[in-house]
């Protein structure tokens, strides 16, 4: 119910925008967010952007996550294993 989908803003027009995720485009309302630019990522819930995503914070959280197993007992971390572009499990796009 509280599902939120991160989408990328590709067009802006006043209080509305066109946002895209996974090849799907949607008209969304911007009533609840400010300073949205084309190229920004916004979190969409029931047709409304409820927040902008912060790439810097996302990167920092990922580093924290990697620290969990770097600090753990798993031994040496093979960085290629966690590079999204290189590991084999990633869904082809």
């Amino acid at each position: 119910m509280c599902l939120g989908i991160p989408m990328k803003v590709i067009k802006r027009d006043g209080d509305t925008a066109v946002a895209e995720a996974g090849g799907i485009r949607k008209d969304v309302r911007l009533d609840l967010v400010s300073d949205v630019d084309i190229g920004d990522y916004i979190l969409i819930h029931t047709g409304f952007a409820i927040e902008k995503l912060d790439p810097k914070e996302a990167l920092e959280t990922l580093e924290l996550i990697k620290d969990v197993y770097r600090a753990g007992m798993t031994g040496v971390v093979d960085e290629t294993d966690i590079d999204p572009k290189q590991h084999p499990d990633k869904d082809p796009k």
């Binding site: 996302a58 996550i65 999204p84 990633k90």
Partner: peptide, 14 residues
Amino acid sequence: LFDSFHDPAIGRRL
């Protein structure tokens, strides 16, 4: 970057 949060390789390590 945002896809990494459902990256199976990271998930496996966790």
